[in-house]
Design a protein around this nucleic acid. Structure first.
Lengths: 365, 365
DNA sequence: CCACTTATGTAACCAGTTAACGTATGTCGG
DNA sequence: CCGACATACGTTAACTGGTTACATAAGTGG
């Protein structure tokens, strides 16, 4: 667990730096007195901390506010542009790259195409090209990228290697994190796509107020990502949530039945219109989905279950029957909501993962 | 997440008190210089901390070591008898109570019988009587009990109320923690039995070196307890791990098939002797068990799966086929071991839970 | 009894935080 | 324009907790 180390006075400064920085980032721009009030620290301490942070380049003084009573206060702001991170989704037939500043504000998006049966090296080249052009296009120097995170389908171990991929050719064994690190010569991480999408929802999406989250990514193949206590739970081998592989769960062919002779969108559309055959088919799909989802829900007992991926766009047409079947199967079924991010969830989650790394390693907690 | 609070100098003392106390408890008895070396703190700081702890009654000076070179060092020891905790299993037909000191050393055990169809108030009275007699019998004053924890089958919510019990009559709705608190007039906690057994294995049993653990408790009914990062994961409603309720999992009637016309022990015995019908039946049971276990393993991807409860005594006769079936069903199956504690696991886990509470609340972290 | 070893006691000092109080710099009303 | 007011800044002193350095105490071994 947490290695417990003795503290000397410098520990205090570390803690108070974190507190101050967090308060400043929340406030956007703030004066010393304001920061002192919200952090509970004295003005002098806040000033000393901000001095240090200023020297390190994380904080800048901005022009004082005018028109207020009393002596104008010096105002400080977090330098969100001190560095950048990149989040990349390396998908089956598309690459999505997002460039974000240290506040997590996405500065630029880039999409790239890649054939579903492209070889691993082609896919990697496409990912690199998309990431680089995303950064270059935004006019950000490549040296200013502090961390990269990549998300992809399949099982990704804790070192960032793809240890198993069923859908992407030649993808098993690829050291995704290691290779992504070379793109910008910075730290790099890699994780499973559903896990990252879950992180995104918890950060800025439907799962902000939940602590334990199961994110079910549905489409041609279904996978799940898990958050415990707001933090990623990848599991020992990175395979946590891969319940779709269990035959009894029936996720394997659930999608196949749904789209027997039409596109999924058509079926959902027809069901929304009241077509009984379509409604029946969606219900059957929801039932299959609910088996695997309830297995996850019973195992984890999460606060929230988020449905994401292509089919999640169907919304209540799918959610309503899913909730119904879940309630039948679970002792106490969790709340079920749709993802707020569409295709962008994985990249946004990757940004969050990269930011977590930066905040931990670079800002030094 | 962790509320980040500003730190003044007293935070240092808190941290260093924890560090010192932990080092002292690990060492048993130690001198100032020794503690200074292992904690990384100066001798003076250690001395100041120990002074405080001495005044609060947690630390006592013991006679110096003789026959060593140099000036004899003062020696200090943690006063494990400064307080006590009680862990109680309130089971279907038995009560198990354990009295432990602050080091978690069990001072006394007590077992009580209770009829399987006893009403809730009878069961509670039996539990109280067993707990009280355990403490009284050991000659420990009731006032010296700092915390009690109780484990029982069924779903226990985070306030310590039994929110659902299928096996015990009238048990649903019982405020177990609230009532247990009155036994000794101290803080009390309650949790699911499988969860506590998992905690026990992680503390002193088969799961010491694992961080994420799934504990499967098998017997007439099967349940599971989950540890994430070494800590209990009860889930939102306390129902995490209750995968047995999922019909597809087949835990409901797995046991019934096993013991069709013999006792479970007999079947295992026969299988060990090579009886082909018995082997077949055990294998079938293991297969059923593996479905639910693999659902948990796939969801959580734990480091370790511990098999406990009555049937776990069968050992490799059951473990071996279970491992085999698990390997078939899981992408990457976890290690599978048998519980080291028999009937006592739940009570030991309850002791650990109570100690966690004491260390958090009383010793103040 | 003396040399040696190890622990204790004391003093000086440092880092980080806070409180107190005077000073600087703006707005507002006459 | 000037005084009253409000608010922030700057400086100083004090406190807490920690560390280093060094002299002193209290044993063992020859």
């Amino acid at each position: 667990m947490t290695e417990l180390r003795p503290g000397d006075a410098s520990l205090l400064r570390k803690v108070n730096t974190q507190v101050t920085l967090r308060a400043l980032r929340r406030a956007g721009v703030a004066t010393l007195t304001q920061l002192g009030r919200v952090t509970g620290l004295s003005r002098q301490t806040v000033e000393a901390v901000l001095d240090e942070l200023g020297e390190r380049g994380y904080v800048r003084e901005v022009p004082p506010d005018e028109g207020a009573m009393g002596r104008p206060a010096r105002r400080f702001g977090f330098r969100a542009d001190a560095g950048y991170v990149v989040g990349v989704e390396v998908g089956g037939d598309a690459i999505v790259a997002a460039l974000a500043d240290l506040n997590g504000e996405v500065i630029a998006w880039r999409r790239g195409e890649v054939s579903g049966d492209a070889a691993a090296h082609e896919r990697l080249e496409a990912a690199e090209a998309t990431a680089l052009s995303c950064v270059d296009g935004a006019g950000v120097a490549r040296k200013r990228i502090w961390a990269v995170a990549a998300g992809t389908s399949g099982i990704v171990d804790r070192t960032g290697r793809v240890s198993l991929s069923i859908t992407l050719p030649g993808w098993t064994g690829v050291d995704l994190a290691g290779l992504a690190g070379r793109w910008f010569g910075c730290d790099a991480l890699a994780a499973n796509d559903a896990n990252l999408a879950a992180l995104a929802e918890h950060w800025r999406g439907s799962a902000q107020h939940a602590s334990d989250v199961v994110y079910v990514l549905i489409g041609h193949r279904a996978g799940a990502g898990i958050l415990i206590g707001g933090r990623l739970h990848p599991g020992r081998s990175g395979a946590a949530g891969e319940i779709g592989t269990l035959r009894q769960v029936g996720w394997e062919d659930a999608a196949r039945e749904l789209v027997k002779d039409a596109s999924a969108a058509e079926v959902f559309e027809a069901a929304l219109g009241g077509d009984r055959e379509a409604v029946r088919r969606v219900d059957r799909y929801a039932e299959n989905l609910a088996i695997g989802a309830s297995a996850l829900a019973l195992a984890i007992d999460p606060d929230l279950l988020v449905l994401g991926g292509g089919y999640a766009r169907a919304g209540d047409v799918l959610l309503e029957p899913l909730r119904r079947h879940l309630a039948e199967l679970c002792v106490s079924a969790p709340e079920v909501v749709a993802s707020t991010f569409g295709d962008e969830g994985v990249a946004i989650g990757a940004v969050r993962l990269a930011l977590d790394h930066v905040e931990r390693e670079v800002l030094g907690l």
